[in-house]
Simulated assay, not measured.
Amino acid sequence: MSTRPRKAVIPVAGFGTRVLPASKAIPKELLPVVDRPLIHYIMEEALEAGIEHLCFVTGRGKSAIEDYFDHQVELEQALEKKNKKDILSATMESVLEAGATSFTRQQKALGLGHAVWCARDIVGDEPFAVLLPDVIIKGKPKALKEMMDRYEDGANLLAVEEVPMQETNKYGVIAPKGDWSNGAVEMSGMVEKPDPSEAPSNYSITGRYILQPEIFGLLEKQGPGAGNEIQLTDSMASLLDRQKFLAVTFTGESHDCGSIEGFVKANIAFGMDHPQYGEGIKEAVAALR
Rank of each mutant, 00 (worst) to 15 (best):
P5R: 01
P5T: 05
K7Y: 06
V12S: 03
G14D: 11
G14C: 03
F15V: 12
G16P: 07
G16F: 12
R18I: 01
V19Y: 00
V19M: 14
L20V: 05
A25V: 05
A25W: 10
I26Y: 07
K28W: 00
P32W: 03
D35M: 04
P37D: 11
I39K: 00
H40I: 02
L47V: 08
E52M: 05
V57C: 07
T58M: 10
T58V: 15
T58S: 10
G59A: 15
E76R: 03
E76F: 06
A78M: 07
L79A: 06
K85V: 15
K85W: 03
L88P: 05
S89W: 12
A90S: 09
V95T: 00
F103G: 06
F103M: 07
Q106M: 08
Q106G: 04
K108M: 11
L112H: 02
H114E: 10
H114T: 00
H114Y: 15
H114W: 04
V116M: 01
V116H: 13
C118M: 07
R120P: 03
I122Y: 07
V123G: 06
D125S: 11
F128T: 10
V130L: 09
L132N: 13
P133T: 08
D134K: 03
I137T: 01
G139E: 13
K140F: 13
A143K: 13
L144T: 02
K145N: 06
K145S: 15
M147D: 09
N156W: 09
L157V: 00
E161I: 08
Q166E: 15
N169K: 07
V173E: 09
I174S: 03
G178M: 10
D179L: 14
D179E: 15
W180K: 06
W180A: 02
S181R: 06
S181P: 00
N182V: 00
G183H: 07
A184K: 12
V185K: 12
V185E: 15
G189N: 04
E192H: 11
K193T: 06
S197R: 12
S197Y: 02
E198N: 03
S201Y: 04
Y203L: 15
T206E: 15
G207V: 02
I210S: 04
Q212L: 04
E214H: 04
I215G: 04
F216T: 13
L218P: 07
E220A: 13
Q222T: 09
Q222S: 13
Q222G: 03
G223C: 03
G225F: 10
A226M: 06
G227N: 12
E229L: 14
I230W: 12
Q231N: 15
T233K: 01
A237K: 14
S238C: 12
S238P: 01
S238M: 14
R242I: 04
Q243G: 04
Q243M: 08
K244R: 14
F245C: 00
L246P: 12
L246V: 11
T249A: 06
G252L: 05
E253S: 08
H255W: 13
H255A: 09
G258Q: 09
G258E: 04
E261T: 14
E261Y: 01
F263L: 13
A269C: 01
G271A: 05
M272N: 02
D273A: 15
H274W: 14
Y277W: 06
K282I: 07
A284W: 09
A287R: 05
R289C: 03
R289G: 13
R289W: 06
